[in-house]
């Protein structure tokens, strides 16, 4: 489980295969050649039209906060508080769930712009860093 204080990831491997690219940092989804709908994570079918052929797609790194909460209580082993959000990627019309950092919990606002950032999601059995994702407030605000 990542905490807000964990540093941005610089090396390692994606914590789930096919979920993201490291350099440059990108989330990997799928896009329907038929209707254009984009899905994240990538799926083998188009959830929108159910008929189109889907192709891999790199997602936009620019998002905005559609909704959010500050988690104050979680099961043992998870450090609180942290900010969890529904982040919209307008360019891809994708909504995904992610933690938001770089902004104090009380300063998060709806529609706040955020950017993709890779972060550690732990360490594999072989010692390799496992890389996950979060979003960082675009405009510098007090964290």
């Amino acid at each position: 489980m990542p905490s807000a204080e964990s540093p941005p990831a610089t090396r390692g491997r994606p914590f789930r295969e096919g979920l993201l690219a490291l350099d440059p940092p990108r989330l990997l989804g799928s896009r329907c050649a038929g209707c254009g709908a984009t899905a994240f994570p990538a799926r083998a079918f188009c959830p929108a039209c159910r008929t189109g052929v889907v192709e891999p797609a790199e997602l936009s790194t620019s998002g905005r906060v559609h909704s959010f909460t500050v988690v104050r209580q979680a099961p043992p082993g998870t450090e609180v508080p942290y900010t969890l959000a529904w982040v919209d990627l307008p360019a891809d019309e994708v909504r995904l769930m992610a933690q938001v950092v770089g902004v104090a919990p009380e300063a998060v606002e709806l529609d706040m712009p955020v950017d993709l950032e890779l972060t550690t999601f732990g360490t594999a059995d072989d010692g390799t860093e496992l890389v996950g994702f979060r979003f960082r407030a675009t405009v510098a605000v007090a964290a």
């Binding site: 909460t69 209580q73 969890l84 769930m97």
Partner: peptide, 29 residues
């Protein structure tokens, strides 16, 4: 203890989802 969350295999669990958080985001919206 501390609430329930999805199976660890679910991507939402990996980003820190707990049930209360989903409903909180629903409420804020």
């Amino acid at each position: 203890a501390g609430g329930v969350r999805p199976d660890p295999g679910d991507l939402d669990a990996a980003v820190g989802y707990v049930m209360a958080a989903g409903h909180a985001m629903s409420a804020r919206r």
